[in-house]
Nucleic acid binder design. Structure first.
Length: 432
RNA sequence: GGAGGGGUCGCAUAGUGGUUUAGUGCACCGGUCUUGAAAACCGGAGUGGGGCAACUCACCGAGAGUUCGAAUCUCUCCCCCUCCGCCA
């Protein structure tokens, strides 16, 4: 949620920003409700002051009838004003929550994802001296995938992942945890990307996979609800990304500035209903209802939040490079970065089986937009309290990472080249 | 699932209807004293909203209710702890 004071002071900019991001909001109406709310609040405060004064006349003794009558009269008026205030405030908050975060200055303006910009391309599409196949063919042939039985048990878009593919996933997990725990590796990434940033290692986390409605909404990730799995008997949802449960982890808490940045590397199974994607990407494991993901999350100050974002992007590039996958970096336009985002970057990996780049990573910078409703703050060294800035970014969505490794590393005989960085975690094997 | 005990301004606690706009201790900040420090003493200090300001309102897990008046009474819910049951 945006700061209402910011909205009051910059109504045109906020309105224009919403338009560029494709959100239909009426800033003038919000400001009207804001003014009404403040007028009512003053009246309510004044009535409460009178109520308190009237009641405190009676300290230590029984009230006389005149005082009781006076108190009743005040209460009647107070109830009326409070009810009105409640109505206005509810509408005000509902409207304010719909206003998207301000896009950073360098976010390209665009009406749809078609206007995203390819910021750079690293590596070249992998070439083969045979006809490359897609990961589904290879994985089926190797006995790594069983979607038929998964469909029997759980329905479409589920899979049994088996054998060496499981070993590959766990190797990636180990590799990433080790890399992001290593200050030397982080230093190399920061220097290479020319980003001034703390080298504090990430703490690996296995988070809860469920989240309460209140916190999901505060994260601004509950919508679209069609995309979420709801647990009917509880006030709980299955998270759609470790971001949801890592970002909400410190709700209603205060960090000390000296402890920042706080960086987590979450490993979690994520759940998505994939509503409206019927028939799309049905082959293999590109788009599943359930997938495992390594996700970075950090809490930083307003001064360091943007560099933290750039660092996350640099880490993503490092990880893709280590896995020997050609990729390109997409700077998402205003229509595509998402409501709580100030900035958003995607990585797209080259998939020879599809002969195209497909999204494997996202990096999101939310400034203080999430923190405002999460009430996650930092006590600055000056003693001042202010809202934290949040960042999240994919380290690897394991399914898509393995697709990239399989398709780019495939040999004519159906074996797969193991990226050098992963070999220590696969018993030194060069192929699987 | 059953029984019981709890949730108060960073931490620990006091507070069962009216000098509680929440007291005290620790920690914290400023000062006095001291060569310096400690101790002692004096003073300050929570979070959020409204207001140019004086000031004022809200917040004692959350929400609703009773009352002239609620941290305190009632109801619903959440969380934590102990024990029992069940269970990976």
């Amino acid at each position: 949620m945006l700061d209402i004071r910011f909205v009051r002071e910059n109504p045109e900019a906020v309105q224009e920003n919403a338009r560029k991001k494709g959100y239909d909001v009426d800033i003038a109406r919000i400001l009207e409700r804001d003014a009404e709310k403040r007028a009512l609040l003053q009246q309510v405060d004044e009535l409460r002051e009178r109520r308190n004064a009237n009641a405190s006349k009676m300290q230590g003794g029984k009230p006389d009838q005149a005082t009781i009558d006076e108190g009743r009269a005040i209460k009647a008026e107070l109830v009326e004003k409070e009810t009105a205030l409640n109505v206005v405030d509810t509408e005000f908050l509902t409207l304010l929550k719909k206003v998207p975060n301000m896009a950073a200055e360098d976010v390209p303006v665009g009406a749809s994802e078609d206007e995203n910009i390819v910021a750079k391309t690293v590596g070249t599409p992998t070439t083969f001296d045979f006809e490359p196949r897609n990961h589904a063919d290879i994985a089926n042939e190797r006995g790594w995938l069983d979607k038929e039985r998964a469909a029997k048990v759980a329905g479409s878009r589920f899979a049994y992942i088996k054998g060496d593919l499981v070993r590959l996933q766990l190797a990636i997990v180990q590799f990433v945890i080790n890399a992001l725990s290593d200050e030397t590796v982080l230093a190399g990434i920061a220097i290479n990307a020319n980003v001034a940033v703390s080298l504090k290692p990430f703490t690996p986390v296995l988070p809860p996979l469920m989240i309460r409605t209140e916190l999901y909404d505060a994260m601004d990730r509950l919508e679209p609800q069609d995309e979420r799995y709801k647990l009917e008997n509880d006030d709980l949802w299955l998270q759609g990304s470790a971001e949801h449960v890592l970002g909400s982890m410190h709700a209603n808490e205060i960090f000390e500035e000296s402890d920042l940045p706080v960086r987590y590397l979450g490993y979690a199974t994520s759940f998505r209903r994939e509503a409206g994607t019927y028939g799309k990407d049905m082959e293999g494991i590109l788009r599943m209802h359930q997938f495992d993901k390594l996700e970075m999350e950090s809490f930083a100050t307003k001064e360091t939040g943007m560099n933290e974002h750039l660092f996350f992007v640099a880490i993503q590039e490092y990880l893709l490079t280590q896995l020997e996958v050609p990729y390109r970096v997409i700077q998402k336009c205003t229509a595509d970065i998402g409501k709580p985002n100030a900035r958003g970057i995607d990585m797209e990996a080259w998939l020879p089986g599809q002969q195209q780049y497909r999204e494997t990573h996202t990096a999101d910078y939310m400034t203080d937009y999430q923190a405002r409703r999460l009430n996650t703050r930092v006590r600055r060294e000056s003693g001042e309290l202010e809202l934290i800035h949040t960042n999240d970014a994919t380290a690897f969505a394991l399914g898509r990472a393995m697709i990239a490794i399989i398709e780019n590393g495939q040999n004519a005989d159906g074996t797969i080249r193991v990226p050098v960085a992963l070999r220590p975690y696969l018993g030194g094997k060069e192929v699987i």
